[in-house]
Amino acid sequence: MAERERRQTPPFGGIFVPHARIMTADDMGRAIRRMAHEVIERNYGLEEIVVVGLQTGGVPVAERLAQSLEDIEGIRPPVGTLDVALHRDDIGIRPVVPEAVTDLPTDLDGRIVVLVDDVLFTGRTIRAALDAVCDFGRPRSVQLAVMVDRGHRELPIRPDYVGKNLPTRRDEVVDVHEVGVDLGVMQK
């Protein structure tokens, strides 16, 4: 989850204190390039792909994945953003922020939607995202790419493309940012 969101969110509010650098900027770049190759391989190109970043943490990752796809295939897939705050089952616990815009560049009917998030945790964000995506059309398939899968799933959801599998304690926090991935805890 994006640091900004977490800060505003009871009961998690507090300051993020990192205790380990899990991935460096180079590691992230390599993981994203690998995921891009996997997306292309699995879908035989980029023909029907739409890359959708989940607000707010997934948006920069989606942007980088799309850039990587373009570097490899020479065409840029449409990139959109999706805010699932209003589709969540824990509404009221997390804030709805006006900066988190939903902006899908194209009709999703018949497309292959690659949802992108920074951290996969309980799976509840992705559940909400699947509901939201279905309100925008009927994609041929929906796939999931995440920078970090930290386990602790509460729903039957699994990612298709993973930057890094990271075993964590439940109370730890994973922060994906521009120059790396940190593992830490929130402190008051």
Binding site: H87, V96, P98, A100, D135
Partner: peptide, 20 residues
């Protein structure tokens, strides 16, 4: 007023409804 922008976008969706 800033939050209203978020809800205005929902009104422009093909299915203008969220389960909030």
């Amino acid at each position: 007023l800033e939050l209203t922008t978020t809800f205005a976008e929902i009104g422009r969706r093909p299915i203008p409804k969220v389960p909030a």
